[in-house]
């Protein structure tokens, strides 16, 4: 499989370190409003790995994703990035991840192009693709200059997904990214994730839907009892 774009990884990376886990979540415990959502939760991600989070509403999928990237507090346990606790390599870790929450994180008064420029400016990476190519690939071809408030919910979601293509971070944390997407959009996202994995990228995705990711193996983690 030839990846259509390279994930930003140091060129010195040799084959054997590719098998070392990049993201390690150990004995994680998170609580909300004095209620423990999950404890002793752990998983590892190696390049090319995909983790799918499943569980009922309120089982803590969003909290887990937010805890991994550092937005939600952790009661116990730790998150390590490339063998070092996240806190010690925070800048490197934040530069390596893209988090897409269930709220898309785009401005409705701006066009997809302006939104993309705003999120690109927040990163330290050079863009991997020109915006128009990214819009075309997420199915927004020709809509790059239409304000988001004139687009549908699914199109707004696609505009948010364009960030994944333009800012080539190795780790994607996607919270219910299929919300508002049609079947065509779902296939598009599955292709993005499969391509990302083929290029050595890692994805943690929370979704209720069965993902069709061709031959890419998926670790499933079920939250809640």
């Amino acid at each position: 499989m030839i990846p259509s774009r390279a994930v930003n990884m140091p060129a010195t990376e040799s084959i054997h370190t590719q098998r070392d886990p990049w993201l390690v979540v150990e004995a994680l415990c998170c609580a909300r409003d004095d209620r423990i959502l999950f404890e002793a939760l752990g998983f590892t991600l190696t390049p090319g790995g995909i983790v799918q989070l499943e569980g009922a509403n309120g089982s803590g999928k969003t909290t887990l994703l937010r805890a991994i990237c550092g937005l939600a507090p952790i009661e116990d346990g730790r998150v390590s990035w490339r063998g070092t606790p996240r806190e010690e390599v925070l800048d490197e870790f934040l530069a390596a991840l893209t988090y897409l929450g269930h709220i898309p994180g785009v401005k409705r008064d701006l066009t997809p192009r302006e939104n993309l420029a705003a999120s690109r400016a927040l990163t330290t990476m050079e863009p991997a693709l020109p915006p128009d190519t990214a819009f075309y690939r997420v199915g927004l071809g020709g809509l790059g200059d239409t304000p988001l408030r004139r687009l549908s919910a699914g199109q707004i979601r696609r505009a948010a997904l364009a960030r994944l293509l333009v800012v080539p971070t190795p780790l994607w944390l996607l919270d219910e990214p299929l919300t508002a997407l049609d079947t065509d959009g779902k296939r598009m996202l599955e292709r993005l994730i499969a391509d990302h994995a083929a290029a050595g990228g890692m994805t943690v995705i929370s979704t209720h839907h069965a993902l069709d990711l061709a031959a890419t193996p998926v670790q499933r983690i079920r939250l809640g009892n």
């Binding site: 990237c69 550092g70 937005l71 800048d91 490197e92 934040l94 530069a95 991840l97 988090y99 929450g101 709220i103 898309p104 994180g105 785009v106 401005k107 409705r108 705003a118 999120s119 927040l122 990163t123 330290t124």
Partner: peptide
């Protein structure tokens, strides 16, 4: 805060104080 761009700002590798 409501549209999620504040989260994106805090997840930037740039210092949140400057942003």
């Amino acid at each position: 805060y409501e549209d999620g761009t504040l989260e994106q700002m805090l997840l930037s590798p740039h210092p949140a104080s400057v942003l």
